[in-house]
Simulated assay, not measured.
Amino acid sequence: MKSLKLALFNQSKIGLVQDEVVFDISSLIGWDSQKPQESLIKVMVNFPEGKTKIENGLSQCEVYQLSDVKLEPPVPNPSKIIAAPVNYFLHQDEMNEQFNNAEYTIEKLGFFLKAPSSIIGPGDTVKLPFKDRRTDHEAELAFVVGKKAKDVPASEAHNYIFGYFALMDITVRGKEDRPWRKSFDTFTPIGPWIVTADEVENPNELGFKLWVNDELRQSANTKDLIYDCYKFFEVASAAMTLEPGDILTTGTPEGVGVINKGDIVTINIERIGEFSVNVEYKEG
């Protein structure tokens, strides 16, 4: 077994995804479904040992069809979500044109934080908080920190990244600071699972797409990142200590657009996978 695709499913069990089936590996690695984030951190910290246990015990696991399970956010409750703004050149041009040459650049903006409480999983629903304000989709490659990191140079960052997944950064447009406009409940869909770094190999050469209903809105490749995954890790870890289980998300390319009630938004990233979420208005 070269790699793992780790999914949370059916009330926070943990599964290994292979083709179209999910193996429930909870009992093999001492998983506590009542404490999924803490359990995930233990899996990452003890990964070599846990991987051997999974390899040796997989034939004894209960098996589900992927189509029959309810996937959940693969990183359910990180201590922080660190996000890169304006990290593709064409999106930088798009933003500056839209906002009257405001000269948005990642070098000037650095990064921002999103609330972990904004996380939802595949098949869940984005709840739009306002009927009279524009809310946009943003497709991004994200990754989860596998071990504690501070002041890590880009050349060493790959040693600290456990795995990758797809992320949608949902955003209300306006003049408020980014953390407010991007942290409403349901504004960070992630999934469909974590693909371990050895399977992804080079995260800085991945194609990805986002559709709203049947319309292709975003299509790009991470080779066009201004700060690639490793450089962004360096910048983030220079400012703050990164803890196991933290999420870093690398920014969105051009093609950002409006989402409305009734839409289905789908993201697909090469070597990682695909998932969709629904869009509705927040009740009340």
Rank of each mutant, 00 (worst) to 15 (best):
W180Y: 15
T252F: 14
F89T: 13
E55M: 01
L248M: 13
A197E: 07
I119V: 10
A236V: 09
V279M: 08
F47K: 06
L248K: 12
R134T: 14
I29R: 10
F275C: 09
Q218P: 15
E49F: 07
W193A: 13
N77V: 08
F112P: 00
F208K: 11
F184V: 05
L109P: 04
P36Y: 00
V279Q: 08
E138A: 06
Q11N: 15
W180K: 15
Y160G: 10
S26A: 04
A83V: 13
A139Y: 06
D68A: 12
A166T: 09
L141A: 07
R133V: 03
L4E: 09
G174Q: 11
L242V: 13
I161T: 05
V258I: 15
V235H: 07
G191A: 09
K209L: 03
T241R: 10
K209I: 03
E254A: 11
R181P: 14
K35Y: 05
T250A: 12
P73Q: 02
P48M: 04
T52E: 14
V22M: 08
F162P: 05
N278R: 15
A7P: 12
E94V: 07
T249R: 10
E283V: 10
G110N: 01
C229M: 03
E201G: 09
I106Y: 00
E72A: 09
S276N: 02
E234C: 09
C61M: 04
F111A: 01
S3Q: 13
K80W: 00
V258W: 03
E107S: 02
N204A: 06
A142F: 06
L206R: 11
K53L: 11
I226R: 11
R181H: 04
S39D: 00
E205Q: 15
F111L: 03
V21A: 05
E62F: 05
G146Q: 05
P129M: 00
Q37T: 08
V172D: 08
C61L: 00
I264Q: 14
